[in-house]
Computed example of a mutant assay.
Amino acid sequence: MTSPRTLNVGLIGGGGGAFFAHPHQKAIHFDGTRRVVAAALRSRPEAAIEDAANWAYPIKGYASFDEMIDAQKDLPETERLDYVVVVTPNHAHFKPSLKAIRAGIPVFCEKPLTLNHAEAKELASAVEKSKVPFAVAHTYLGHWSTRLARHIVRSGLIGDVRWVDSAYIQGWLAGKTEETGVQQAEWRTDPKKSGASNCGGDIGTHALMQLRYITGLEIAKLSARLEVFVEGRSLDDHFTSYCELSNGAKALVRASQICIGHKNDMSIEVNGSLGTLVWRQEDAEAVKVMLPGQPDRVYWRGEVAANDGFLGDLPDDLMGQPKLPSGHVEGFHDALARLHRDFEVDVRAYLAGEAFTCDGSKYANVEDGRIGLAFIEAAVASSAQDGGWAELD
Rank of each mutant, 00 (worst) to 15 (best):
L7D: 06
G15H: 07
G16N: 10
P23Q: 05
T33E: 12
V36D: 03
P45K: 11
A52I: 03
A53T: 10
Y57K: 12
Y57W: 14
I59M: 09
I69Y: 00
R80K: 15
D82N: 12
V85M: 03
T88A: 09
K95M: 12
K111Y: 09
L113G: 07
L113Y: 08
H117Y: 14
F134H: 00
V136F: 01
H138I: 12
R147S: 03
L148K: 00
V153R: 01
R154H: 09
S155M: 07
L157H: 07
G159V: 04
K176M: 10
E178R: 03
V182M: 13
Q183F: 12
Q184M: 11
A185F: 10
P191W: 08
C199N: 02
I203C: 00
A207E: 01
Q210S: 12
T215D: 12
I219Q: 10
I219P: 04
F229R: 11
R233N: 15
E244M: 00
E244R: 06
G248M: 09
R254G: 02
C259G: 04
I260D: 14
K263E: 15
I268A: 01
G275W: 00
A284L: 07
A286W: 02
V287I: 14
K288H: 11
D296K: 13
V304T: 13
G320T: 09
P325V: 00
H328K: 11
A337I: 08
L339V: 06
R341G: 06
A355F: 14
F356M: 06
G360I: 11
L373F: 14
A374V: 12
E391N: 14
D393K: 13
